[in-house]
Nucleic acid binder design. Structure first.
Length: 649
DNA sequence: ATTAGGG
DNA sequence: CCCTAAT
């Protein structure tokens, strides 16, 4: 039997892609003195020997490596050096314990040597520790659990020992209770032959005291060797003290890093108190991964069950694991943990996502820049808005939101843009308002003007803002305060309506504000996206038709410019969509007609003449509504593009 | 950045 | 309306 395990190798920057050179890490964080870790694949022979993994073997786990890579990189970068994942593949009986971040091409032979060297050290520590019984009491990984985790081991034979030892090795740098790592498989180990190897006497004689490794007894030469093993490079430094310090630092630091306190019990990981052995964590990691040993294609998810988390997303799960291993001890409480996960979950947020976030935020802090004018302009109008000013106390508080990225517990602060406006920036109408104390009245005027002509941008914008205040007094403050075009739009649907009244068909007043129109729809990605529906007004439709007649269908950006420059919403795409619906409606509507229309929908039917116009235009352009000939009126509304009910505004 | 289409 | 693909 053979086992492929990963060997973590403390690297000081010399080894290949540990590229996270120390210089940079040193710069990035004062406390990141530790060295990145590089894991290499090796195979543990039955007798405990280590053999460089073959390319094939590497290939087998390559995917896995790749998978973890991104995460690992960060981890390594931050000096959080411990990450062992093991997987068992195929029923061949091979057990692969793989430590991520390994490009298999490294000098395995060298690694091998290092490994053995380190192993010795570990054994030493182990020995010492085992003599210190007290620590033992902290061991919480009950055998039952471990048994479950090591199905392969249960099958007896030499394998167990090798695994155990590798585990030990992997986490040897952890805290003083290395032996605990082997504990889990204890029972099995005893039956193993190589168990003795683990506990065999060694030369290097270090001992650890209160987290500090005493290397005093080592000779310079030994120190050099140890150094080499530890950092993966030679050193010419003769200073014993320096060497000792360097080595000790490396070793203990890694301990600190994963000093998380967990207890594994009943397949769950629960937090332990500080004093408790940190090695458990590592063991847990390995063990949980080991749990996958079952079948070849077991997915990560399986192992996560061990951690007691519901696995709703493999990726998340994996991240979670990392967090648990490396950062939880810093986070402290579950909530934060969750936040961490959440934050990670949305890494690389989509543009839209970001925007929505900011939208929420802006809604919250609405006032700000427009605050002054709001107070002056609407004080008399709506007393209710008074509540808000308090917030102004924090002027620019949230220009920046820094989220604490705990990757590897590095504590790197990542600044996030808090506000992103989807639509293009608009002129700040609030400033305009300033000059028109009467606000509403002025706006009304403007809107009227706009009605006659095509209205300039600013004018129409204003009208949009101010027009239908009466219908929704509560929202007034929003009107004045809303500053982004989008928000404005949302806040008020008015303007156009007022205009509509001029028309023969009066359009029922929008009973809902933009906010109420916001509907969250579940997204495939689990996220919820906001979908606001802004009913098309007759005026808009008319404009659209005019535009189409003028520019022809398809030239929507042009139409948008000409006829809808004032409507910040209604993108060219919207126009296109609306036209599509109109087209459909016009054709579908003709035959059957009025019958079912009525007020059922709460929206007014599109005046026939409009539809006729549309039809004509369509004819002119030889446009035929999709599926017209075939599926006609049957599902008129249903066939409409999204929420736009055919034949209605 | 615009358009066309699907959802 | 939203999202994408194709221009």
């Amino acid at each position: 039997m053979e086992t492929v395990i990963g060997v973590d190798d403390y690297d000081d920057g010399k080894l290949d892609d540990s590229g996270v050179d120390r210089s940079s890490s040193a710069l990035s964080s004062p406390k990141q003195i530790s060295n990145p870790v590089v894991y290499k694949l090796v195979r543990v022979e039955g007798d405990g020997r280590l053999v460089p993994a073959t390319d094939d073997e590497v290939m087998e786990v390559e995917d896995f490596l790749e998978y973890e890579n991104s995460e690992m990189r960060v981890v390594a970068d931050t000096g959080q050096s411990l990450e062992c994942i093991s997987i068992e593949r195929s029923s061949s009986g091979k057990l692969r314990l793989e430590c991520s971040e390994g490009t298999a091409e490294a000098d395995l032979g060298k690694l091998n040597a290092k490994f053995q060297m380190l192993q010795k050290v570990k054994q030493e520590e182990k020995l010492r520790l085992s003599s210190r019984s007290p620590i033992r009491s902290h061991v919480q990984i009950d055998s039952q659990c471990s048994a479950d985790k090591f199905p392969v081991i249960n099958e007896k034979d030499q394998e167990a020992p090798s695994i155990a030892s590798s585990l030990n090795y992997c986490h040897s740098n952890q805290s003083g209770s290395i032996d605990q790592c082997s504990r889990p498989s204890e029972g099995v180990i005893e039956s193993g032959s190589s168990a003795s190897a683990v506990y065999s006497p060694l030369k290097p004689d270090f001992s650890m005291t209160d987290g500090e490794i005493c290397l005093d007894k080592l000779s310079i030469k030994e120190l050099h060797e140890l150094f080499k093993v530890t950092f993966g490079r030679e050193t010419t430094v003769k200073d014993k003290q320096w060497l000792k310090r360097r080595i000790a630092m490396s070793l203990t630091n890694s301990c600190d890093v994963s000093a998380t306190t967990f207890t594994i019990k009943d397949n769950k990981i629960s937090r332990k108190r500080e004093e408790e052995c940190s090695a458990n964590v590592n063991a847990a990691a390995v063990i949980s991964a080991e749990n996958m040993a079952g079948e070849g294609d077991v997915k990560y998810a399986d192992s996560y069950a061990v951690e007691g988390y519901t696995v709703d997303d493999i990726q998340v799960a994996s991240e979670t694991r990392l967090d648990n291993l490396h950062t939880e001890h810093e986070l402290g409480d579950e909530d934060q943990q969750r936040e961490q996960r959440a934050a990670k979950r949305m890494r690389k947020p989509t543009k839209r996502y970001i925007e929505e976030l900011s939208e929420n935020e802006s809604r919250e802090y609405n006032p700000r820049s427009s605050s002054s004018n709001r107070n002056t302009g609407h004080r008399h109008v709506s007393p209710t808005s008074y509540i808000r000013p308090a917030r102004n106390a924090f002027p620019e508080v949230r220009t920046f939101v820094t989220r604490f990225d705990s990757l590897g517990g590095s504590g790197v602060q990542i600044p996030c843009v808090s506000r992103v406006r989807r639509s293009r920036p608009r002129k700040n109408i609030t400033s305009l308002m300033k000059f028109h104390p009467t606000g509403m009245v002025e706006a009304a005027k403007l809107s009227n003007n706009a009605v006659s002509g095509h209205g300039s941008d600013t004018d129409s914008e204003i009208q949009e803002k101010v027009s239908k205040p009466s219908s929704m007094p509560v929202k007034i403050h929003q009107l004045s305060t809303s500053e982004s075009g989008k928000e404005k739009q949302c806040a008020i649907i008015g303007t156009t309506e007022s205009r509509q009244e001029l028309r023969p068909n009066k359009i029922d007043p929008p009973s809902h504000t933009a906010d109420s129109n916001m509907v969250t729809v579940p997204t495939a990605k689990g996220g919820m996206r906001r979908k606001h529906h802004r009913a098309w007004t007759l005026a808009e439709v008319t404009k659209l038709i005019e535009g189409v007649s003028r520019c022809g269908p398809g030239r929507w950006s042009e139409i948008k410019r000409q006829s809808f420059s004032s409507y910040s919403h209604r993108t060219s795409v919207d126009l296109k969509d609306k036209w599509r619906n109109l087209l459909k409606a016009s054709f579908a509507h003709t035959p059957a007609d009025e019958g079912m229309n009525s007020r059922k929908h709460g929206t007014a039917p599109i005046p026939e003449h409009i539809l006729v116009r549309v039809r004509d235009l369509a004819a002119m352009n030889s446009q035929v509504p999709p599926h017209f000939s075939s599926s006609k009126l049957t599902t008129g509304a249903a066939a409409s593009v999204h929420g736009d009910r055919l034949g209605y505004l």
